[in-house]
Design a protein around this nucleic acid. Structure first.
Length: 198
DNA sequence: CGACCGATCGTCT
DNA sequence: GACGATCGGTCGA
């Protein structure tokens, strides 16, 4: 079952970021489904400096100002396509960066996209790797998360606060004080969470 | 291990 | 013209 639109339209981006843990993120490209379970997310709100939309709308972040339930994909460092979930209602730019998955489906296809020989933790660990493995690119910006090509599924898995770790976000030093916000969430002990042993 | 570095380009100032 | 919501490799201790 795909997550319903209502899921994304709620106000509290932190709540949604936590609830996305355990959900399935999949793409269907050229008839092949690839994807896995979300194990790590980061919340971004226009109210804090870490967020691309903090200083208002630009060409790049325009889609964050749309109603939730769509994808925001942008190019980072000229190399990596980073995938975000847009949440909240029109004109209230919130987004959730998906930082890591546990591979579930189409592993062969994901290995091909990433030029890997066999499955290891690096396949879908880290936001750049997630997008590469699933074939997500900036052209997918604006696509509905209930679409056929790109969607988030709910198999009923929910994690409790006890199983979720909150920590500061990665790579947002430029946000000053807001870099300290514990807006990064991951499933405790999951081996695909970024930043641990390779 | 940790620190550093190169790749690579669209976006914003 | 500078700089990333990154990654993987290399180098030195």
């Amino acid at each position: 079952m795909k997550l319903p639109l209502d899921f994304y339209l709620r106000r509290n981006v932190v709540t949604i970021a936590k609830q996305l843990l355990g959900k399935g993120l999949f793409t269907k490209i050229d008839g092949q489904i690839t994807g896995g379970m979300i194990v790590e997310t980061e919340a971004y709100s226009y109210k804090e400096k870490g967020c691309h939309a903090h200083n208002g709308m630009t060409k790049r972040n325009e889609i964050m100002f749309a109603d939730g339930g769509v994808a925001y994909v942008y190019l980072c460092y000229g190399i990596h396509h980073l995938f975000n979930v847009v949440t909240n209602n029109k004109d209230i730019p919130h987004a959730i960066l998906v930082r890591a998955l546990e591979p579930l489906k189409g592993i062969e296809g994901m290995l091909l996209r990433t030029n890997k020989e066999k499955l290891d933790f690096s396949l879908t660990k880290g936001p750049g790797n997630v997008s590469k493995a699933l074939g997500i690119q900036t052209k997918h910006t604006g696509i509905s998360l209930l679409s056929k090509e790109l969607y988030i599924a709910d198999d009923g898995t929910n994690y409790t606060n006890k199983q979720i770790v909150a920590s500061p976000r990665i790579g947002v030093d430029y946000a000053g004080k807001d870099a300290e916000l514990k807006y990064r969430f991951y499933i405790k002990g999951n081996l695909y969470v970024s930043g641990k042993s390779k």
